[in-house]
Design a protein around this nucleic acid. Structure first.
Lengths: 203, 203
DNA sequence: ATATTGTTTAACATTTTTGTTAAACTTTAA
DNA sequence: TTAAAGTTTAACAAAAATGTTAAACAATAT
């Protein structure tokens, strides 16, 4: 049952990703990471000199994973409505596979803004934002859609896609939903979310 | 400029709320809280014996503050559409005044589910959920609105209202918005959010 | 076979943070 | 004015977490 064929470095990174992503930097314990990786603290430091260095690797992985899920879709050669539908589906599929990613990024940014902003500058997320603004504004100028501040569209997409995962620990408690029911709900929401967003700008 | 007329216990609680709400339990430092309150560590422990005890008080305050913002509105004697508009406005006003509240509750629940679930049971939040389900289902039975799983409506409201605040640290970086611009955006969204939610069920 | 690399054990050093205490001093209330 | 409560200082104790090391052993590659 152990992941015997994986090399140790990978086992450490997997364990570190899991623990850091769930607990955040401050609450994570090196001992816990070592145990989860099936090794001891001495070996952990043999591979990664310090907690901060290990965290940096995990953080970089997570940031890349996060932004790559939606960066490509805008470039596709379809109308805005289809772009939105594709974006929502891709985003929700990524989130079902990585449900803790957004809370991790948001919480660490809140706890340590300077460091996170520095790291965020290493990925072209602002570029994505500008491209999105431009795509929408062009459609407005062409008269294809209703005039609206594109930021509202982006805020709608982000809110409706990300929040269910960010708020999942609380949501599941309030509603009493199982993991299965939660995922079924997300599947249903692919359509509902797209329609809500499209209604913001459809003539 | 100091808050000289406030008694020390209140100054400690204010500082603790600020630091715990921004940093979370694990990253918060007693020293930082003492300094923020304008006192020293010895006096901090003179008032609150331990970090955990101080945190518990802050947590209880925060939970009450959070749920009281939306618990009353459902009981009002107006149609569902008006209830939603009022709920969204009240919620966003509360959040502008307490922007870090939702992230605090969500992050702490994620980091320490057992403890938080125990605390959440002290406030009638599940009761609110059940009441909401019932209100919507009654409207559906009466034929006043389109049939829809009420959970989707609640998820829409929570996502659209809470996410901008939860994701604010990241959002402000991506868009480069100032605090002023952010609040102006939220003001605009009062209408946009209500419309999006109402469109889910309006015939 | 042997050298290298990976791994464990166990002890220990260091750092960080929390919690405690005694003594002196200040403010407030009786 | 005096006693009590509030506050600071400074030192220290205790706990928790990170980081280091040496010695022994295992696995693997040359």
């Amino acid at each position: 049952m152990e992941e015997i064929d994986k090399n140790t470095e990978q086992k450490i990174l997997d364990a570190a990703r899991s623990i850091f992503t769930n607990q955040g930097f401050a609450a994570a314990r090196m001992d816990e990471i070592a145990t989860e990786a099936g090794i001891n603290r001495a070996l952990l430091h043999y591979y990664f000199r310090s907690k901060q260095k290990l965290f940096d690797v995990v953080l970089e992985e997570n940031l890349n994973h996060f932004y790559q899920s939606f960066i490509r879709i805008l470039a596709s050669d379809v109308d805005l409505e289809t772009k939105i539908r594709n974006l929502v589906i891709a985003e929700l599929d990524m989130l079902v596979a990585n449900p803790n990613l957004p809370l991790f990024i948001i919480a660490e940014t809140s706890r340590n803004p300077e460091m996170m902003i520095e790291k965020l500058n290493h990925i072209p997320i602002k570029q994505f934002f500008l491209q999105f603004m431009q795509v929408v504004n062009t459609e407005i100028e062409k008269g294809n859609i209703k005039p609206i501040n594109p930021v509202h569209i982006l805020m709608h997409i982000m809110s409706l896609c990300l929040f269910p995962f960010v708020g999942r620990p609380v949501f599941k408690h309030i509603t009493g939903a199982s993991q299965e029911q939660f995922e079924k709900l997300i599947e249903e929401r692919k359509i509902i979310i797209s329609e809500s967003v499209i209604q913001l700008f459809k003539k």
